[in-house]
């Protein structure tokens, strides 16, 4: 089913954080704890889904020359709305405090933009909704994994509960930006390895780039 394919696309094949490497700023900044990562992911997913749907509904109205300002205004509107919600609802206030500065930064998150430009502006609203959900879920999962790894190794806890790995004390570096980058790189490599498709070899003679290939010299037999 096409909808399932689009949904799973955002989680595995084109995961925004781990494959497309979009939205790395909030990823690195917010994943000091798993709970923060989860919260940021969900907040971004809301903004992504709503803006995808609205932009898809307006795709025939927005002229090409001003599409970027229009997208920004729409996304920023939703992010402001989410920011209000977080401030008002008491049991969500902890998220507002922990996200802090990165809540308004959701408005300029690359992921939301890329989906608006590449998908929502070219597809119908329902499938844009599915795509938003898929990408948002992929983003949340990636952030949750990062947050978990960094929290367990860096602070010796998970979701607020103390966890200790044997005799190893928590290493503060994983809570700092440098450690965040390390962890990010490791997770990207691991995910890349796990989702690698086998490469189909076609050999030199079928390669369309043969004419410009450095390894090919005139008159040489096939390699």
């Amino acid at each position: 089913m096409r909808y399932l394919k689009v949904f799973m696309n955002g989680i595995i094949k084109e995961n925004p954080v781990l494959v497309m490497l979009l939205g790395t700023c909030p990823t690195l900044a917010v994943t000091t704890t798993a709970a923060n990562g989860l919260g940021m992911g969900i907040a971004t997913m809301f903004a992504l889904v709503f803006s995808n749907v609205v932009i898809s509904l307006l795709k025939s109205v927005i002229p090409r020359q001003v599409r970027l300002p229009c997208y920004i205004v729409i996304v920023a509107g939703f992010v402001t709305f989410i920011s209000f919600m977080l401030q008002i609802i008491p049991w969500l206030y902890w998220l507002y405090e922990s996200l802090g500065l990165f809540l308004p930064l959701i408005a300029v998150n690359c992921i939301i933009f890329e989906r608006a430009e590449a998908f929502a502006s070219k597809n119908n609203p329902f499938i844009s909704l599915i795509d938003g959900l898929g990408m948002g879920t992929g983003f949340t999962l990636a952030l949750f994994i990062m947050g978990t790894a960094r929290e367990i190794l860096g602070a010796g806890s998970w979701m607020g509960y103390e966890i200790s790995i044997g005799e190893i004390p928590p290493m503060m570096i994983f809570g700092l930006p440098a450690g965040g980058f390390f962890m990010y790189g490791i997770i990207i490599a691991a995910v890349g390895k796990l989702t690698k498709k086998p490469v189909r070899t076609i050999g030199c003679e079928n390669c369309p780039s043969r004419a410009t290939c450095k390894n090919f010299t005139a008159g040489e037999a096939d390699k």
Binding site: N206, R210, A218, G219, A221
Partner: peptide, 26 residues
Amino acid sequence: LGDCVKVCPNGAIHIEGTRAVVTPGK
């Protein structure tokens, strides 16, 4: 001298002795 060989994207032509020959299959 192989000008045709150099431009062939598929390696379908090669020099035999003093002339160029096309491998039709390629």
